[in-house]
């Protein structure tokens, strides 16, 4: 962990998370300071390298749609359920009304909520696939995200094809209260039905995957893979530190730590992900 000189401050919690500033805001302009080695690099170089630092290999977050460009066979991605739009069932507001926050976030991200999904193929294998958009309110899960995840699973069930979900989230979205909590039950129930078709469900945990998403479908993969150095766990580090009143050991809740404890199946670097997925699909698909 030595090169991990600067820990990212995550506002993740046992369950939900407050909206995070979209990562796009960070390093606005043409330079980017690497979270791994603290070197300042040309932003275009970083993006060309799928947001992996060319100097130290640190995996920066990546805007959601780039994930499909990287992984799917060219031209095969067909986005679905893009029209699902969040509502405000609680009439929630803090510093800002939840409704206004949704509108503002939709404007800056070009997304309606924190999940993009559809179908495509990987190495010729058709898959039902979806990915969280951390740039949308910290990738938090409310009704729309839960529904889209469930539909990714349902589609895989109906078409008898494998499904893959990429998670990057602080957990359930507190602005939708009990509805967010129940998305954990909904997605897990959908998965339980899906198991009968004997097709693989692969869960890939990106940085970070915590709270209610970790504690539901993200950890229910037949195969659970993580990107290197991703923060993964139930409670966020800040909550644990407050509870036990001591500093957490370095590397705690990172991918490597989880692999060591037998809690995930493999760590796969971003640029090797496509081949690894294709390999698993050809073995189990």
């Amino acid at each position: 962990m030595a090169w991990f000189s600067k820990e990212k401050k995550l506002k993740s919690k046992g369950g939900p998370v407050e909206a995070q500033p979209a990562p796009a805001k960070k390093g606005e302009g043409i330079w980017n300071k690497c979270d791994g080695c603290a070197e300042v690099i040309y932003k275009a170089d970083l993006e060309k390298n799928w947001n992996i630092c060319p100097l130290c290999g640190h995996h920066e977050m990546m805007p959601v749609r780039r994930r499909f460009d990287l992984l799917l066979d060219p031209g095969t991605f067909q986005e679905l359920d893009a029209d699902l739009t969040p509502q405000d069932p609680l009439g929630f507001s803090d510093a800002k009304k939840y409704k206004d926050r949704l509108k503002a976030t939709a404007k800056t991200t070009g997304l309606r909520d924190a999940f993009v999904s559809g179908t495509g193929s990987i190495g010729g294998h058709p898959v039902s696939i979806g990915s969280f958009a951390f740039e949308f309110m910290g990738g938090s899960m409310g009704s729309v995200v839960g529904e889209k995840v469930a539909r990714v699973i349902d589609r895989a069930y109906e078409r008898r094809i494998p499904c893959i979900v990429f998670s990057s989230t602080g957990g359930a979205r507190m602005q939708e209260g009990i509805f967010s909590l129940m998305q954990m039950a909904k997605t897990s129930a959908a998965l339980n039905r899906f198991r009968a078709v004997r097709k693989p469900y692969i869960s890939v945990m990106l940085h970070p995957t915590t709270g209610g998403v970790a504690a539901s479908f993200a950890w229910l993969g037949d195969v659970v893979i993580a990107e290197p150095k991703a923060l993964i766990g139930f409670a966020g580090p800040r909550v644990i530190e407050q509870t036990i009143r001591e500093k957490l050991p370095p590397g705690f809740q990172r991918s490597e730590f989880l692999l060591e404890h037998g809690m995930i199946d493999a760590i796969v670097p971003r640029l090797e992900m496509r081949d690894k997925l294709a390999q698993i699909l050809s073995l189990l698909g």
């Binding site: 897990s188 504690a215 539901s216 993200a218 950890w219 139930f234 409670a235 509870t243």
Partner: peptide, 22 residues
């Protein structure tokens, strides 16, 4: 709430809950 501690995380608190949901 489920206990947020070091041991609980090491032994897979999130996984334990997830499995029960399913």
């Amino acid at each position: 709430g489920a206990y947020p501690g070091i041991g609980a995380e090491e032994r897979g608190q999130a996984e334990a809950i997830a499995v029960n949901l399913e």
